[in-house]
Write a protein that binds this DNA or RNA. Structure first.
Length: 912
RNA sequence: GGGCGGAUAGCUCAGCUGGUUAGAGUACCGGUCUUACACACCGGUGGUCCAGGGUUCGAAUCCCUGUCCGCCCACCA
């Protein structure tokens, strides 16, 4: 394992900024020219240029370096071509890009397949809305012309979406881009439809579907949003046909009474038992319907009598099936009352018809009561129109057999959700699966490959368009006018994009894919169905890991929505702060897939971090002039060097484990803390000592190490902030290949250095202690102070060699170890484990205040000591707690007692 | 009606298989333009970890009960 990157031999990337000095084959060992970075970090200066460099350089295509590593593959959740990307896309594409870049650098053949979804109803609605502005409907144009218009909209939006993904920095392989309605995917859809039909997993039947009168199409169950609404509950008198009495039914929808086929009562309801088998006469239309018994009826609700309208209520539909009742549709496809209703409401919308019917019932004395009633009302998820249960001929997929396989695969551990909690959601849905209505009465989408013979009615479902009826030979075949639900192509996405049903090299190499990154709102719509399709048609799950992201919300925790106007546009974010800032911020905030509250300002987290990286680099580059850079692997190491390498190694390990667990917050925190707190705040500060001195060799050595650690830090951070790291990388001395294509840092046990960690902690404790003292007594930062360090037996040697650095960091022009017998008069002490640090500032401060402060901190320590002692004298603890814990407690106690003792002694001396 | 999740500093949240003196960012207070960064640096204030019970030597962490919030699913006319 190499310690640092080898200086690359050839310039693969020659940016337009850094000019390597002519004729310098290996700048590492030569005098370095001053390299200037623009003073301000401005992502606009380079993000577009770098993206083009990556793309044109073929860096997004999978590379097989022959190491036999497993490919890492993601298929993008295809954005709809209805519009532009929103923050949710910003989030999931940023996270996908982090995974992709990480594994690419790790050497796996890495592929990210981009693409877009035709989004059936949604896109059709966009086009219809445009037509409406011109006063036109889709039928004015006709199917063909309408589709032409829709393709135009698709092209328009597709271009925008692609551009946006590039802006975000998504490193997907554009040479493999797909669209759900392109030729290959359409073939996959057809193959699947026919295969399902052949396997008896597909059927056509009259069924009560969710109907959107505005879109004019059936909707799947999940495409209906339920909302609580206050409506009415009416009780209506249904007289018995024989005039011997009446039944009172309760209904929320009086206008559907003309479609009633029965009145049901509970079979054991003593009030009505004797009426079962008789008939009642429907008011206003005079039709006789039977009184039937069905256990579904709740005796407690309303009057205990339920009017049965099989064509307009899902439950009634079921009951109707059980009792073989007639289905009478009282509504047309556009939501108006049909010819099956009395003339006074024909052609009216349901709402008006309801009012009119109630008036009529009241006028004729059939209305018993009316009260308000709160219930769930379904709305179309695309256009929010109230959805009607509607009787029609539709195609369905039999889901039960598919769901069983999907459940089995999960139980076997073939798929894993991150975070795990979503597995419940997945399981619950699959265990309660219903058949999937896949036909849609719109034009934009995959046309159903089914033909009916006009003369004999034979149904043909085929791979090739039939020309002749296979039963009667008639050439008059009528194709089903409907198209498929948009998800019917989406559920094939992981293999259709790789070429299926063809047996392409990509398919065999990259299927199954590795990870899926998506939001929890489409676990049912999409994730579960992809798993079912993958198992059914490929015999294997489509991906192994499913990372479910949270939802990006506004600062108040509300969903971002157009109507609230509280959304932020990822492109605005990129424009203001840069793609790196957005990506880093989102990852940083992605805790366990929890929702992410953010606004424009939140992005400063990433933006400030990028700025920090920029400036740290600028500082280092400023100090390179004339330096002879050596080999960081072999050069002598200072304490700070050993410490930073140890810290770097820890960060590398944390990122690796966080990456395996899809903990984006953890990995980004790790790189953030390493670079900012360790590298900038301490390491670079320490390096200033070496850099500003007179020792040329030490200057060279310091610069060598600074650059070497920076280089590796850039590689470490690249997946999270790809643009700025690439830009900076290209400016470092030495010609080099693009960062995107280099290797990712690996954990290196030879860098583990507990001694350096401990020694550096002592150093930083000392520095912090003195700084706190200075700050509390407002000693001017520029004021140099005298310091004498007295060490205890434990402290011996730990600080040796760090004196000059410590002196610089605490601003002391007279810093030394305390000589035997040397006076400490005029000093105040900072007591840390191993050392008592005497700071000679007594004449500069209020001694009483200092004493009070000292006493306060001592009291705190004493209290802790008391607690620890109590714990350690507890029989139960000592006998039951594990040994290492006890040892740890003892050590902590000893250390505290030592400092407390020295503090107390010091305090006494000070007071005396 | 069923299921899931959340409640930790003023705010937004980490705290993973129980062992810290409970952390970060931000806000706040004080000080610094210290030859990279004021998008910065240095220091500081701030917490009955929702309530109550239990398990344990030890609970923010595990279990139970309750309260409050959020989400998903569900056909009560």
């Amino acid at each position: 394992m190499t310690l640092f990157v080898e200086p690359p031999s050839s310039a693969e990337y020659d940016g337009d900024h850094r000019a390597p000095a002519a004729g310098e084959p290996h700048q590492r060992t030569k005098n370095v020219k001053a390299i200037e970075l623009p003073k301000a970090y401005d992502p606009k200066d380079f993000e577009d240029r770098i993206y083009a460099m990556w793309k044109d350089g073929g860096h997004f295509e999978p590379k097989d370096n022959g190491e036999g590593k497993d490919p890492f593959v993601i298929v993008i959740p295809p954005p709809n071509v209805t519009g532009v990307l929103h923050m949710g896309h910003g989030l999931n594409n940023s996270l996908q890009d982090i995974l992709i870049r990480y594994w690419r650098m790790k050497g796996r053949p890495t592929l990210w397949v981009p693409g877009t979804d035709h989004a059936g109803i949604a896109t059709q609605n966009v086009v219809e809305r445009r037509l409406k502005e011109k006063g036109l409907g889709r039928h004015d144009l006709g199917r063909e012309k309408f589709l032409e218009e829709t393709w135009k909209v698709k092209e328009e939006h597709h271009g925008i979406i692609t551009k946006q993904l590039e802006k975000i920095g998504a490193s997907c392989d554009w040479s493999r881009e797909r669209f759900t309605m392109d030729e290959g995917l359409s073939e996959a859809v057809r193959e699947v439809f026919v295969t399902l039909y052949e396997r008896d997993l597909l059927y056509k039947g009259e069924y009560l579907v969710n109907w959107c009168p505005s879109c004019g199409t059936a909707l799947a169950d999940d495409e209906v949003d339920h909302e609580e609404k206050t409506g009415g509950l009416w009780e209506i008198r249904y007289p018995l046909s024989d005039g011997s009495g009446e039944l009172v039914v309760a209904t929320t929808r009086p206008e559907t009474m003309f479609g009633d086929s029965a009145v049901a009562v509970h079979p054991e309801d003593d009030r009505y038992k004797h009426l079962i088998g008789k008939t009642v006469r429907l008011p206003l239309c005079g039709r006789d319907v039977p009184v039937i018994a069905d256990a579904y009826v709740d005796r407690e609700f309303g009057t205990g009598c339920l009017k049965i309208t099989p064509a307009h209520d899902p439950n009634d539909f079921e009951i109707g099936n059980r009792h073989k009742l007639e289905r009478i549709s009282v509504m047309n496809g556009d939501g108006t009352m049909s010819a099956a209703t009395p003339e006074f409401i024909q052609g009216m919308k349901a709402k008006d018809a309801r009012k009119r019917t109630v008036e009529e019932l009241e006028a004729q004395g059939f209305l018993v009561s009316h009260k308000e009633h709160v219930h769930q009302v379904g709305h179309c998820y695309r256009c929010s129109t109230v959805v009607e249960p509607y009787l029609s001929d539709q195609w369905f997929v039999r889901m039960q057999p598919l769901a069983e396989k999907a459940l089995a695969a999960w139980r076997k551990g073939d798929i894993t959700f991150y975070p795990k909690k979503w597995e419940n959601t997945y399981r619950h849905w699959l265990e309660n699966i219903r058949d999937w209505c896949i036909s849609r009465q719109i034009w934009w989408g995959h046309r159903i490959p089914a033909w009916t013979c006009a003369s004999c009615g034979e149904l043909h479902v085929e791979r090739q368009d039939p020309t002749q009826c296979k039963k009667c030979g008639s050439e008059e075949l009528r194709r089903d006018p409907d198209v498929l639900d948009t998800w019917f192509s989406s559920w094939l996405w992981p293999f259709s994009t790789l070429g299926w049903p063809e047996k392409t090299p990509d398919l065999s190499k990259f299927y199954p894919t590795t990870s899926l990154v998506t939001g929890y709102d489409i676990i049912f719509f999409w994730v579960a169905r992809m798993i079912m399709a993958g198992l059914e048609f490929m015999g294997e799950v489509p991906f192994k890991d499913i990372y479910i992201t949270g939802l990006v919300r506004d600062k108040k925790g509300r969903k971002m929505s157009k109507s609230l106007g509280n959304g932020i546009d990822p492109l605005d974010v990129v424009d203001t702060y840069g793609a790196d800032a957005m990506k880093f911020t989102l990852a940083y905030l992605s805790a366990q897939g929890e929702d992410i509250p953010m606004d424009m300002d939140t992005t400063k987290i990433g933006s400030k971090f990028a700025n920090k990286i920029w400036n740290a680099t600028r500082f280092i580059l400023m100090n390179l002039e004339g330096r002879q850079l050596g080999d960081a692997k072999t050069c002598e190491k200072s304490l700070a060097d050993r410490w930073i390498l140890h810290r770097l190694n820890e960060a590398v390990k944390t990122v690796a484990s966080a990456m395996d667990a899809y903990r984006f917050d953890e990995m980004s925190h790790a790189v953030y803390e390493f670079f900012w707190n360790d590298y900038c705040d301490w390491y670079v500060e320490c390096a200033k000592g070496g850099l500003y001195g007179d020792d040329e060799a030490e200057k060279d050595r310091t610069a060598t190490m600074l650059i070497a650690v920076l280089e590796e830090a850039l590689r470490l951070m690249h997946p999270f902030l790809p643009f700025i790291t690439e830009e900076i990388w290209s400016k470092l001395p030495g010609t080099r290949e693009a960062l995107i294509g280099t290797s990712y840092p690996e954990a290196d046990s030879s860098r583990e250095d507990a001694a350096a960690e401990a020694a550096f902690k002592t150093l930083s404790d000392l520095v912090r202690g003195v700084r706190t003292l200075r700050s509390e007594f407002t000693i001017a930062p520029a004021k140099q102070v005298k310091v004498r360090v007295e060490c205890t037996s434990e402290g011996k040697g730990v600080m040796d060699g760090s004196e000059s650095i410590a002196a610089m960091l605490v601003r002391s022009d007279d810093f030394a170890f305390l000589e035997e017998g040397e006076s400490t008069d005029g000093s105040l002490a900072v007591v840390i484990p191993g050392y008592t640090v005497h700071v000679f500032i007594k004449d500069l401060i209020d001694v009483d205040a200092a004493l009070a402060r000292f006493r306060k901190s001592l009291d705190k320590t004493l209290k802790l000591i008391e607690g620890k002692k109590k714990k350690l004298s507890n029989e139960n603890f000592v006998s039951r707690a594990p040994e290492d814990i006890i040892a740890k407690e003892k050590a902590a106690l000893a250390e505290m007692e030592d400092t407390a003792q020295r503090s107390a002694a010091y305090l006494t001396a000070l007071e005396g």
